[in-house]
């Protein structure tokens, strides 16, 4: 191997009861790119991200992060954002940041402050009183305030208002440093996010259907990723 891949999965398979959530997925992702993980509900996106985050164990196959098996060491290098809300209602925005800052090894307060400003989040606001869009912004601020090697964002745009979606996308672009940040973002709302993807992985029923660079999808198929998405899953 000439270049160390940041993420390497080999024949990754995971079942939940009778459901085959992931079926023989082998993917390599280098450092420093933004990957769109797309597919309809139930295609295995969340399971894939959880396997990388070390929250779920594979039935067979392997996951390597920075060449190491997923475990305590790799967990410290990965910032995982679940689809569900992880904050308590009684917390303020500031509490939520403090809370996470105390749990992770790589918190960066400077980044946190910058993100709060950019996302128009008020430190004193109670989580309980935040709109869905504002909660989504808070989740993103928390995930991206870490100095992680890998950011895993599970449906960060799902079900939130358009202005919040735009803010979130822009803050991802604004905070992104070429070659340094690696982001895997799962979504089934492709149209709005496709501009930020460099590579797109289509999952279907737990399998990789397409894995290609975003620009070459446009060049080779003459259509948007959204268009291809609609065609593939129709």
């Amino acid at each position: 191997m000439t270049e160390q891949m940041l993420v390497q999965t080999k024949n990754l398979t995971k079942r939940f009861g009778r459901v085959l959530a992931l079926n023989d997925v082998s993917i390599e992702i280098p450092k420093g790119i933004v990957v769109g993980l797309v597919g309809p509900n139930g295609s295995g996106k969340s399971t894939f991200l959880k396997l990388l985050a070390g929250l779920v164990r594979p039935d067979s196959g392997t996951v390597l992060i920075n060449g190491q098996k997923v475990g305590l060491k790799t967990k410290a290098q990965v910032s995982y954002q679940p689809e569900i809300d992880q904050f308590y209602d009684w917390m303020s925005v500031g509490d939520a940041l403090d809370y996470t800052a105390g749990l992770v090894p790589d918190w960066n307060w400077e980044k946190a402050q910058e993100l709060l400003g950019f996302l128009n989040l008020d430190q004193g606001a109670r989580v309980k009183h935040l709109s869905k869009g504002m909660r989504a912004r808070l989740k993103l601020a928390v995930s991206m305030s870490r100095e992680a090697d890998l950011y895993l964002l599970d449906e960060p745009l799902s079900g939130i208002d358009p202005p919040s979606r735009v803010r979130i996308i822009k803050s991802l672009i604004g905070g992104y440093e070429s070659g340094r940040h690696t982001i895997i973002l799962s979504t089934h709302e492709v149209a709005e996010t496709e501009g930020i993807f460099e590579r797109v992985v289509f999952l279907e029923k737990g399998r990789v259907r397409i894995d290609e660079s975003a620009e070459s999808i446009r060049a080779a198929h003459g259509r948007s990723i959204q268009g291809l998405f609609e065609e593939v899953y129709e």
Binding site: V34, V166, I169, K170, I173, S178, E192, G195, A214, E215
Partner: peptide, 16 residues
């Protein structure tokens, strides 16, 4: 490049 990436909402590597 950064400004353009932000305004057009595209990946900075694409603008580069």
């Amino acid at each position: 490049q950064r400004e353009l990436a932000l305004n057009a909402r595209v990946n900075p590597n694409t603008v580069q």
